[in-house]
Nucleic acid binder design. Sequence first.
DNA 1: GCCCGTCAAGGAGTA
DNA 2: TACTCCTTGACGGGC
Length: 320
Amino acid sequence: MTIVRLGYVAMSVHVKNASPSQTMTFTRFKEIPNRDAAKRKLERIAQSNLKNCLRLLQHNAAHDIHFFRLSSRLIPLADHEELTDWEYMPPLAADFEALGAYAKAHHMRLDFHPDHFVLLNSPREEVLKASLITLKLHYKMLKAMNLNPRHRAVMHIGGAYHDKEQALETFIENWGRVPQALQQMIMLENDDKSFTAEDALYLCEKLGIPLVFDLHHHLANHREPRWQESWERIIATWADSPLPLKMHISSPKSEKQFRAHHDHIEPEPFVRFLQDVRGSIDRLDCMIEAKKKDEALFQLVNDLKNVPWITWIDGTTFEM
DNA sequence: GCCCGTCAAGGAGTA
DNA sequence: TACTCCTTGACGGGC
């Protein structure tokens, strides 16, 4: 038996005016003559983002959603190189605490996906440095929510830099420069252009990192099409994690724009996948990455209602 | 209230 | 070498 939880990404199409990613660009920041006033404005935006985030968690609780990706843009400009003197945490501490407490009370798995500019295998010193600053920000947010940071941030491997083998080795070299607390926070994901699941497994097995398998990326980018051959190895990368194996699920926008995400999830390929992995592990968390966010999740739940070997435990959790 | 240019980031691809 | 595109959601000026 496998218990599967479904989750979605960062914002809701149902909850109106609840963006967790309101922002101010650095260009606008500089236009405000009083720097302290500008910082206060950033703090107000961040507070609004966190309050909206709590509303999203409340919406999730109401719909039995126990798995959610937080926006990485909760605090605008927090990792900007010209704002290192800004002590943003004290005015936000209470809001972060409330978020973490709510998630714990409602048994929710929360995590982050730092954006694709966070590159641990960059040959450029300044890019690696900026990436570590952004990762540290994610770590601080998790700590502020009183969540165990272990395996809460999924990342891509990075650029191929015209030599994929060398790029993988650079990742390993640079990994030694990542503080241990940040290393423990990280999961790796196969991407749709450069690094296949096989490449990611090479790093994950060597460095002890859980692999977040993205099925759509695998279909777009692979050497060996049969992911099933690697499934046991993928499971094994999660052996030391306090959290269940995590997957990314999305559907291609079209044949032509295969790599882009569709509004919704095509149920048939997902059902075939579930059939293949059924019983192979106790728990599986599937992050639904679709343009229509929670609406796509609700539609998928509806589509899965007809599958005879699925037994629903609550609104978005089932046993198979 | 809608439309569209702009903002940020790093890499890939093309000319 | 220089550019355009990719991606994301939001901002903000113009009408």
